[in-house]
Design a binder for these strands. Structure first.
Lengths: 348, 348
DNA sequence: TTGTATGCGTTATCAG
DNA sequence: CTGATAACGCATACAA
């Protein structure tokens, strides 16, 4: 049993060196049970001088716990999610937990495979950002043996906690921002009414505007990309009836709209204000467009919090908890800097 | 030994059900050694009917191999790196390897801690994007027990492979692009000559331009952010001596420069062309600025390739390999669409 | 407080 | 080809 310098020393090596049993060495190093000061010191010295490091694999096998959490993300939204990855990672670190990351294709089977494979690794919990609704239902069922929390969307399951976005509140935030700045009519660009999520957003825009006296109309659908914004803006200009505000599906659409309006000499935000409902580059600090930013860092933190809590509580009384977070309104140069003073207020 | 439905079945359960020894069950499931067709079928049936899944923790302990690799990223560059994370993850998946992710602070001790902690988890290899040069030297020494590959920067170590960027080639690409489009003078904005990396880039700009008859001058340093670009452009305009081309440290600086030039009525790219040396939002397809994009996906792939290869070769004859990748020139609206026809060419 | 012995779930060695 | 058994490295029940 020569001490090969390239092999990691084991607890047995430490114990031998310290002249104690492995049990004692273990107890000193884990702090699980009281050990006399004398042996305590001997073990620590031995450990240090050998450069001992606990083998977490063996430890995991024994403890039936890996101190590891799996994070499953949809592949095709990667850049949005880097903030989420980082916050989850940071928050896990605070709990001495490791993060194993996995991407899922927009495909049910692969998604479930992913979770199963994470379970094979005996992760202590899973955070999943569901790529689609029906896909994940079964995946999450599959993971019933460990706590799961969903983040980013709500999926109809009563076996897992979830943290999502309060989209209606987000919409109201944006509409109020525009109304405060004098907008009396909104045109929505880049929304597809036949897609449930978009339909819901349009609906929310409408209901938020109504009490404020803001009318809403959806522009004919164009794709939610730069070119879509350009086409929509051109059509709007040709029709000749510009609204006081344009709300776009995301930043790219808004960029397109903005470019066309300015090129054609329309003052933005002077005569028309433009805003986006989805910030596409959360890492950047480019305030050219007023937009709604998902609170990814907070969502990550919250997800970890739920997970750790669920793990601590054990599997009894598993009641699904839903946490809603409001997005952040990031004011930019495409809407007016400060509220317009209305005539009523002036006379007051 | 009641079969608790909530406990994962073990190999022993499968063996019992199939009426064979655990050894045989293991052989069937791993395919390590030949087993008679009859027993093979029995074991598979038993495994399937029990929903058996191999416990990779136990497997790892036995095999002294976790099929896991660690990825260490600097925290404060997160959004740039999401493309790297994804490509590394995807490529690892092809090799049935799991990714455990960790962020490092710009701080030597923490960086080393990170690697040690990964080693405690017995990862089979480590990919690290070094936050700073001297920091990582020791960290990488610490990881001598497993293969390490550095990605994104070259650190002077002859014990690890690395994949980096061919910055000089990148610079030449950009300068040629500008020269082809009629630029005869370049002003560099947002570079700090006292920072070695920036000094090197300026030098590269100069050497690339010289043979093409392009002169280079650095503008007085302003920070490499939007405001820095704005201030630099204003100063340039006040001096009254505009160059034919402006090369900025990154996209943000370029945005600032662009905004000021256009606001003050300077035609871009008509009279002045503007380019950036660092694409800040690789996820986006916004072609408003000509820029250089790091080939993150390719770098990730290459890093995994090196790692897997190193692991296969074992620790003998560890000669450090360096692979350099050229960045991609992404043409945008801030430089001319196609090369200018020079007088010589016209007369030819 | 300390030591002995056992098991976590797999895989590999060694006989048969 | 198959089976019994010994590790892998650690943590704990139990005995002292």
């Amino acid at each position: 049993m020569g001490v090969d310098p390239h092999e990691q020393p084991t607890l047995a090596d430490v114990a031998e060196r310290a002249g104690v049993s492995v049990a004692t060495a273990s107890r000193v190093l884990t702090g699980a049970r009281p050990v006399s000061d004398d042996l305590q010191r001997k073990v620590r010295d031995a450990s240090r001088s050998l450069g001992y490091r606990r083998n977490t694999v063996a430890s995991s096998l024994r403890l039936q716990r890996t101190e590891t959490v799996g994070l499953v993300l949809p592949r095709y939204a990667t850049s949005f999610l880097s903030a989420l990855i980082e916050s989850v990672s940071t928050e896990l670190e605070r709990h001495e937990l490791s993060l194993v990351l996995r991407y899922s294709e927009p495909d049910a089977l692969h998604d479930a495979d992913n979770i199963v494979s994470l379970l094979d690794r005996r992760v202590d919990g899973i955070i999943v950002c569901p790529p689609s609704l029906e896909v994940s239902r079964e995946s999450i069922q599959a993971a019933a043996s460990v706590p799961v929390v969903q983040v980013g969307r709500f999926v109809d399951t009563d076996r897992s906690d979830s943290v999502g976005l309060d989209e209606d509140r987000a919409t109201a935030l944006l509409v109020t921002h525009l109304a405060d700045r004098g907008a009396t009519s909104i045109r929505a660009v880049g929304f597809d009414e036949s897609v449930p999520a978009d339909a819901r957003r349009l609906q929310a825009l409408g209901s938020a505007g109504a009490p404020l006296g803001v009318s809403l109309a959806a522009a004919p659908f164009t794709p939610a990309v730069l070119e879509g914004g350009i086409r929509a803006a051109e059509r709007l200009l040709d029709e000749g009836a510009l609204p006081r505000a344009i709300v776009c599906a995301n930043d790219d659409v808004a960029s397109g709209v903005l470019a066309v309006l300015r090129m054609r000499g329309v003052a933005v935000p002077g005569s028309v204000q433009v805003a986006s409902m989805l910030d596409l580059s959360p890492g950047r600090e480019d305030h050219s467009i007023t937009t709604l930013r998902h609170p990814w860092p907070e969502m990550g933190r919250e997800a970890v919090r739920l997970l750790v809590d669920a793990a601590a509580r054990g599997s009894d009384d598993r009641i699904a908890r839903r946490v809603s977070l409001a997005p952040q309104l990031v004011p930019g140069g495409s809407t007016l800097p400060s509220p317009v003073i209305t005539p009523q207020e002036q006379s007051a």
